[in-house]
């Protein structure tokens, strides 16, 4: 045949990826009481799943669907709509660079080039050692500190390309200096 179709009707077992542990499921169930429907807990559930697995695997989506009593397609729908969820494995730390107008006016473009050169990865890619992943994001709402770069939960402000080395050298570059709430695990 001259055309090819992507086969969505079956998926090899190994592509399903890791599943959720009972502890993670328990953490998700704790959110059920907050909403009148179980489906409403899908966003917190996905955050928790991603924090635990590093990304949202197909198996995790299936297990979440079972947990939330919705078809797995609805979970996939939500996962793909929001930009924060990764459907392929990401590194331990995610560099999230703002590319919105204030940051770009003040040199986010140069910073992006510097990151890509320094780490040798493009957007949505991960370094070979599994340490860093990189993606850009529309507006991190810190335009007063442009250009800004987030490493997991930690916001680095007014980052110039020459600051990059210092940030990457710091092992605790993703550690918040305020007390964390334990509602969500650190990624």
């Amino acid at each position: 045949m001259s055309w090819q179709a992507v086969d969505r009707t079956r998926v090899p077992e190994e592509q399903l990826g890791p599943g959720l542990s009972e502890a993670v499921k328990e953490k998700i169930r704790a959110f059920f009481s907050r909403y009148p429907t179980k489906q409403a807990a899908v966003l917190p559930a996905l955050h928790i799943a991603q924090d635990a697995l590093g990304y949202v695997s197909l198996r995790a989506m299936k297990e979440l669907a079972e947990l939330l009593e919705i078809p797995p397609s609805k979970v996939m729908d939500v996962v793909t709509f929001y930009t924060h969820f990764w459907t392929h494995p990401k590194g331990r730390k995610t560099l999230l660079l703002c590319r919105s107008i204030s940051c770009e006016l003040l040199g986010a473009g140069k910073l992006k080039d510097a990151i890509r050169q320094r780490l040798g990865i493009g957007e949505h890619e991960t370094t070979p050692d599994g340490e860093y992943s990189f993606m850009t994001e529309e507006c991190l709402a810190a335009c007063d500190h442009a250009p800004c770069l987030m490493v997991n939960e930690k916001m680095h402000k007014c980052v110039r390309p020459e600051d990059l080395e210092r940030i990457l050298a710091d092992a605790d570059n993703d550690r918040l200096d305020i007390p964390r709430s334990d509602l969500f695990d650190a990624p």
């Binding site: 969505r8 998926v11 197909l58 797995p72 397609s73 996939m76 709509f81």
Partner: peptide, 17 residues
């Protein structure tokens, strides 16, 4: 379901379902 957003939107099934 619809997956993704904007002009990248697609109709899709969950793989294997």
């Amino acid at each position: 379901r619809v997956v993704d957003r904007g002009n990248r939107c697609e109709i899709d099934v969950f793989p294997g379902v």
